[in-house]
Write a protein that binds this DNA or RNA. Structure first.
Lengths: 244, 244
DNA sequence: GTCAATTATTGACGCCTCGTCAGATTTTAC
DNA sequence: GTAAAATCTGACGAGGCGTCAATAATTGAC
């Protein structure tokens, strides 16, 4: 490790400060309200100085997103490190994801901004890679559990279907639900009263469909999720606090 | 119906012309490349004239998106109007959705632009409503099939779970898969070789999980999808041609 | 066919943001 | 103490947005 000079530390600290200033603007007023001039004047630095840290505002968003995704990854890790069968631990990951969307609203929102092609495409490949790696890390946590389920014999393997491809399904269902919930303000108008409960049920039914033992009835499953929730929520909250 | 004067027809035609000009720019170069000045100069009209049709560029995107969604709706209608059991017809809708993503790439892409909060939020409530209605229409087509499955007794009903909430699951899984496929250029790096096949399987397993009769093994299901595909593709292509 | 009223079109304009870079200022190293 | 290196500054050019006063075209009554 290289020792950093005082100046270097100052600069690093300022990078963090920029993110601290930019985040509430992005969240409260959207991307177009996040201007370099504004960040600069709020921080009482010249614009050029800000550009020394981030070569455009898209980079700021991706930097925020990376932080957010690291939090997500930590939650997943915690969930996966629980006890019991792989299926139970996968349920815990579902809960982690739910927690992230529900309780780490800001981070979840930042992730959404990052996905905008406008923003993604204008930021540097380096930062993109960092984010991709983090995403792959999250995925790996889950696919390990699938592998474990298969190894133990609880989950039948399928011809030409990798553990990652199974995760893809769970990922798609939770991700899809979250996006739809976040972007359709009128789900209730479409008779979708409780999207979170629905998503839980769909995950259960998907796992049942794959024959992942033990098979749970919906009632049973929802009960277990509540128990798991009581167990993990304090831990998730702890991680969230540390992150702040 | 009101007769339109020649002038009115001309104006209407120009609206269409604007969309024709704007679409390739949006698709090939993205939203920030779509400027009113550029559209105006390409059409050899003054900018103000374009603003007479669309009060900002976001409106243009939403207008394009509405066209796209109407195509999607037509595909869904065709799929739902097939013969056989509700489960089979739901599979056909899955295929319609696949066809839309795969073969109506441009329309699918336009839909993605519409979902950007930047764009959505800046366009008029009227146009937003049109789009929401179209989305609701698509959803209704599917939820009718769920109702039919339940009525016939093929699909067990669940406590506190509306047909729409069941559709939500299928919607989330296909939508989520499509977004992930479209936005993660390196799915193969994550060991997801064939996302389309995976998605098909996940839909099958979800339906199996819900106990929708007849239950299909994955092999069986994939075979049926191929058959259905042969049956519906020509019809879908027909609809696509009419739309152009 | 004329002409006034209505409707449509134009494009220069003001405002805003982006990202740059030459010059001013501060820090570092000796 | 001082010269070289690093850092910071903010005015500037480029370019997009949306407006609106001025201009042109169209309509329809006579």
């Amino acid at each position: 490790m290289v020792e950093l000079s005082r100046k270097q530390r100052e600069i690093q600290e300022r990078t963090r400060e920029i993110l601290r200033v930019a985040k509430p603007i992005l969240l409260a007023e959207g991307f177009q309200a996040l201007t370099m001039d504004r960040v600069a004047s709020l921080m009482e630095y010249a614009k050029g100085t800000i550009y020394g840290h981030f070569s455009n505002k898209e980079e700021i968003v991706l930097a925020l997103a990376l932080e957010a995704m690291r939090l997500r990854q930590k939650l997943f890790q915690k969930a996966a490190s629980g006890t019991g069968l792989a299926r139970r631990r996968i349920m815990a990951i579902g809960l982690a994801s739910e927690f992230y969307t529900q309780r780490c609203t800001e981070e979840f929102q930042v992730e959404q901004w990052m996905r905008h092609s406008n923003i993604w495409d204008k930021s540097s490949p380096d930062r993109q890679t960092l984010i991709r790696n983090c995403e792959a890390g999250c995925m790996q946590i889950v696919s390990e559990l699938v592998r474990e389920g298969q190894a133990v014999g609880d989950l039948p393997t399928l011809e030409r279907m990798s553990p990652e491809e199974m995760v893809f399904g769970l990922w798609a269902i939770t991700f899809g639900s979250q996006i739809l919930t976040a972007s359709s303000p009128s789900l209730t108008a479409l008779c979708i009263i409780d999207p979170i409960r629905s998503t839980r049920i769909h995950c259960c039914q998907l796992l049942n469909g794959f024959g992942w033992q033990p098979i749970h009835s919906v009632e049973e499953y929802l009960g277990m999720v509540d128990e798991l929730s009581a167990e993990f929520h304090p831990q998730f909250e702890q991680i969230q606090r540390e992150y702040r």
